[in-house]
């Protein structure tokens, strides 16, 4: 009986605190993302030729985010029937966005204009007894590009010449 009471208390505490932390974190993520929108993250491996001369620098950002008791319990129940584990989706989404933000913040501190070739790396940190995931670790890394002169973001598109028009399939 005592065990059951402890369990229910943990579940309620986990739910209340977990949801509160979730929402505060999402609010902070959205706020910082809007502040950092002027530094685009690009998965491309090659810089446009117009970017040279520029400096490059490796930037990384990592975060470890823990599950809460309620999330773990819900995921445990989900394991019985299978399907979408909504409680872990928000966890990994927060971790990814936080890692990207930390990386972008470092790039901003260097005065970077872009971050190229962004890669992500995820791993789980199992709890001591090995009973499922207890925390998720996300690393985001990429190359910060610091332009030495301001390159035009979009190249001027030239109007197609008459010769090119003829090549159009009919």
């Amino acid at each position: 009986m005592v065990d059951l009471i402890i369990f229910v208390v943990l579940l309620i505490v986990g739910y209340v605190f977990g949801q509160a932390i979730d929402q505060t974190h999402y609010r902070s993520i959205r706020k910082r993302e809007s502040l950092l929108r002027n530094i685009p993250l690009i998965a491309s491996r090659k810089l446009p030729a117009s970017f040279e001369p520029c400096k490059t620098e490796l930037v990384t950002g990592n975060v470890v985010i823990s599950v809460d008791f309620y999330k773990k319990f819900v995921a445990g129940l989900r394991n019985l029937v299978g399907g979408r584990v909504r409680s872990y989706e928000s966890l990994i989404d927060r971790a990814r966005r936080e890692a990207l933000l930390r990386m972008t913040e470092k790039a901003k501190a260097l005065g970077a204009n872009y971050v190229f070739n962004v890669k992500m790396e995820t791993s789980s940190i199992p709890s001591g007894r090995g009973d499922g995931v207890s925390a998720v670790d996300v690393l985001a890394y990429g190359t910060a590009v610091i332009l030495e002169r301001q390159a035009p973001l979009i190249q001027k598109v030239e109007a197609p010449s008459p010769g090119m028009m003829n090549l159009r399939p009919r």
């Binding site: 986990g14 979730d22 990592n62 470890v64 823990s66 809460d68 008791f69 936080e98 690393l139």
Partner: peptide, 26 residues
């Protein structure tokens, strides 16, 4: 750090100790 992480496992949130540990290790 493991004991702190155990407590955090109930409430959720970032494990700052682990974040630093992994950062230093990388």
């Amino acid at each position: 750090r493991d004991i702190m992480a155990g407590v955090k496992n109930i409430f959720g949130g970032e494990l700052t100790g682990y974040t630093e540990l992994l950062n230093e290790s990388r």
